[in-house]
Design a protein around this nucleic acid. Structure first.
Length: 501
DNA sequence: CGGTCAGTTGAACAT
DNA sequence: CATGTTCAACTGACC
């Protein structure tokens, strides 16, 4: 057993070696004091309930890559199974931990856990270091600059960060000294488990389209940063939600897992834009990164950001409950081919284009099904590879016109919207294969096809493919009246509150 | 307090 | 095909 003190770096969503300040702090401490270095990742027993299978696969691939990158530095990853408080209450003594580093997270569950670990560490006299490294900017200083209140528009956020100089990235170049290697470094019980070890049959999953890990993340970053002209001309609204291959970078899963540093992405983008004409936020690629920062800041500064009730920025809307509709939506069985194609792509591949998210989120909430954005957010949490606590809640509030966006009467048409970028319906034919032989005329509206055409195409609506669960033209108008009523109530409440204060 | 203005990306239709 | 207008149901920041 260890007879020497240890430094622990606790990896969470910072699954990388590059630009990882907390990790470098840990390494320096271990080197300077000749302590053991133990980079750990904790796998919670109920991880399967919290993380969907595709994201689990991405996570485990990222852990595997992280382990192999740590080994190149003469270290390794120690996988621990259990809850953080139970594990640490034992290991702090057993490993003689003196110094614990990690990144700062804002997800309330992680914050709660950190408070428990803080108390535990205080009892044992362990020094804790937590670093901002999930975002470009430190949300704390941005909020302070805005007198402690949350910036509620993107432009306001941009004006707040305009003059903040972004720090340089941090690299670890030296390999670790042998004396930092704990004696149990070769122990196999700390190895990264497979999905099968967790009781998931990996062969039951769809083929892996986006492979997790720092190595893949950096490769993908380099691939896109080489296309300088493409980067400089990038305008988000002009990219396609329904191209067969993604029309955007798909760096988001790498950012959300911390396989890729957002700060590195920032500096690389600045480098490409430097001295050349380029598009601007909000539509530019750098603008996309700033959206992430905006939501992160809003999430960090708002109580109950992931809920409607008790959330100061969220308009209270009397959403209905309809489990049948919710299930049809989440399984891609609404009877609207464009909506279903998007939801099936999401479920199978774990990533959909941002505008595709707009389409299905609007459909679930204010547009058609009148179901709470919180339900949609839960399904996205399950399906998305790039799930991120504040971005998910923020975007769902945006799309349901609960916060940040208020022109609720601008509703996406499940028939017209997709046609702008895919007249032939190739995207639908791929992800809703039962309709692949439909004539282009009917591919977005198969129920309009004459029975004989449906039979010739090999799929009768109501048999091989569901009938529409709602009539968009009719129901979206009813929903607009409900939205108007909810806004009116909200306004009255606000003016009442103003009078009282 | 009130007026003004801008706000990542709607649809349908006209020119 | 790109651009502009209408539909009519908005809010937050700022002065």
């Amino acid at each position: 057993m260890a007879n020497k003190a240890s430094v622990v770096h606790w990896f969470r969503l910072d699954l990388r070696i590059h630009d990882n300040l907390a990790l470098r702090n840990a390494i320096n401490e271990a080197e300077n004091r000749q302590y053991y270095l133990r980079p750990v990742f904790i796998i919670d027993p109920d991880i399967k309930e919290r993380v969907g299978v595709n994201r689990l696969r991405f996570l485990f691939q990222s852990l595997q890559d992280l382990d192999s990158n740590l080994r190149k530095l003469n270290s390794r990853l120690f996988i621990l199974k259990g809850t953080a408080d139970e594990l640490f209450s034992k290991l702090f003594d057993q490993w003689q931990v003196k110094y614990l580093t990690s990144q700062i997270d804002i997800d309330p569950e992680i914050v709660k856990q950190d408070e428990i670990v803080d108390r535990l560490a205080e009892e044992k006299g362990i020094f804790i270091v937590r670093r901002v490294q999930h975002t470009v900017y430190d949300f704390h200083s941005v909020l302070k600059k805005n007198n402690g209140s949350v910036p509620l528009t993107y432009q306001k956020f941009l004006s707040l960060v305009k003059d903040i100089k972004v720090k340089e990235t941090i690299e670890i170049t030296k390999t670790l000294s042998d004396y930092c290697k704990p004696p149990d470094s070769t122990c196999e019980e700390y190895n990264v488990p497979s999905l099968n070890d967790l009781g998931i049959d990996e062969s039951s999953l769809k083929s892996c389209k986006y492979h997790g890990g720092e190595t893949e993340g950096l490769k993908r970053l380099n691939l896109y940063m080489e296309k300088k002209n493409w980067v400089c001309k990038f305008e988000k609204p002009n990219t396609s939600p329904n191209s067969i291959e993604p029309s955007t970078t798909v760096l988001s899963p790498y950012l959300s897992h911390g396989c890729l540093s957002s700060k590195l992405f920032y500096h690389r983008l600045k480098g490409v834009e430097n001295g050349v004409a380029h598009s601007q936020p909000p539509v530019s690629l750098l603008g996309q990164l700033m959206w992430r920062e905006f939501y992160y800041t809003a999430g960090a500064g708002t109580e109950n950001f992931d809920k409607m009730v008790g959330n100061a920025v969220c308009t209270q809307i009397p959403w209905g409950k309809n489990d049948k509709y919710l299930k049809a939506w989440s399984e891609g069985m609404t009877g609207y081919p464009f909506v279903d194609a998007i939801m099936r792509q999401l479920k199978q591949e774990g990533w959909i284009h941002h505008l595709a998210r707009h389409m299905v989120a609007c459909f679930l909430t204010r547009g058609d099904l009148w179901i709470s954005w919180e339900e949609g957010a839960r399904v996205f949490e399950d399906y998305l590879l790039d799930y991120d606590w504040s971005l998910n809640a923020g975007n769902w509030m945006w799309l349901s016109a609960s916060a940040f966006f208020y022109k609720y009467f601008r509703v996406y048409s499940p028939v017209a919207f997709g046609k702008k970028t895919d007249k032939e319906g190739l995207f639908i034919r791929k992800y809703v294969p039962e309709l692949k032989k439909y004539p282009t005329e009917y591919i977005y509206e198969p129920w309009k096809a004459p029975k004989s055409v449906q039979r010739t195409a090999g799929c009768v609506v109501g048999e091989g493919y569901p009938q529409r669960i709602v009539d968009h033209d009719k129901i979206h108008k009813e929903n607009m009246q409900k939205m108007a009523a909810a806004y009116k109530v909200n306004k009255e409440k606000k003016s009442l509150k103003r009078k009282l204060t």
